[in-house]
Design a protein around this nucleic acid. Structure first.
Lengths: 178, 178
DNA sequence: CCTTGACGTGTTACAGTATAACATACATAA
DNA sequence: TTATGTATGTTATACTGTAACACGTCAAGG
């Protein structure tokens, strides 16, 4: 589903740069980045019949404010400040919806959630978590997933879901404190 | 560090079968399997100066009783029954020690811990978790880790630790309920 | 119309997971 | 012997997650 980037990406035909894996670790036009992902999520939801209600949309917006993972209780605090309910299930249910729809991911290492940066594209997410700046990037994971599938198939294990997460230092933080 | 398997593995020169990845999902001589891993852990601890104290050893034994992951509170209950302390830090500290030494792994998807089936061998652990029987296997992960390293290197990310976990059905459970 | 059922939201209450901080004990080295 | 480090035990509390019920809305079918 193409969208108009002419004014934001002059001279570019598409918006591949919007979801490039290392974007999370680099300075970039994050307003555009977030607005773009949100718009795509809205289109996807409309197309699939999933209801991106006010709370749910607001949670996605909150997650999209940065390339970091947020705990459910942090999200909840923000929701409460916006006049939504302030009890845990409010946040957990909205987050669960977003994860189910592929609009967000759960980062188990951090007990936290992060917006999906390329919703709609099928991808077995692999996360690179910077321990210095807390940014989280979705890395290109097809080869990783292929290797994992091969290992599983070798012993007859049928994979349904995966959690692939790596903790380390992002390019920016490596140069600061090597 | 070789050990005598002559009487346990007649006709075999080594004990590769002891830590084969699919062992966790198959019927096998688990007493031998567990005793072997425990013995190797003790040797490694002695060699490195790490103190495998009674609580710690007992926790490892408990984890080794099955190829399943156990929650810290389950471990704690067992410890308490054996006359050790019955407060959470007792279990968490022993588990942390075992994880640090590479004698156990933390399975984040399950908020649980599992004994390492091949301590001492450097390995980036990859876990296959059967959702039916709860068994956890450490799969051969070198290719997975290589793919992950490649992806990380491509964007300049320096990986320090990884959590690679897959949920699905093990060979035995697949055939039961396909 | 209205009523029924599905869904979303809000709330209470609680269950499960994890750690900080302090006290005690025991070993070993100075 | 005293000092120091490490391990264990304990209290208390923080953090993460869910079950269950109440209420409202909205659309389908009577």
């Amino acid at each position: 589903m193409p969208h108009d980037h002419a004014d934001l990406h002059p001279g570019q035909d598409d918006c591949l740069g919007c979801t490039s894996p290392d974007l999370a670790f680099a300075r970039h036009d994050h307003d555009h980045c977030a607005a773009d992902v949100l718009a795509r999520a809205e289109q996807l939801a409309a197309a699939s019949g999933a209801r991106l209600t006010p709370v749910r949309k607001r949670v996605l917006e909150i997650l999209l404010e940065s390339h970091k993972a947020m705990g459910a209780y942090d999200v909840l605090q923000r929701l409460a400040a916006d006049g939504f309910g302030n009890q845990p299930p409010v946040a957990y249910r909205a987050l669960e919806f977003l994860v189910d729809q592929g609009f967000a991911h759960r980062i188990r290492r951090l007990n936290a959630f992060a917006a999906c940066m390329h919703p709609g594209e099928t991808h077995a997410p692999t996360f690179l978590i910077c321990k210095a700046c807390d940014a989280v990037a979705e890395a290109p994971a097809a080869p990783v997933r292929a290797a994992l599938d091969a290992a599983a198939q070798a012993i007859g294990f049928a994979i349904e879901r995966t959690n692939i997460e790596a903790l380390g230092l992002c390019p920016a933080c490596r140069t600061v404190a090597p």
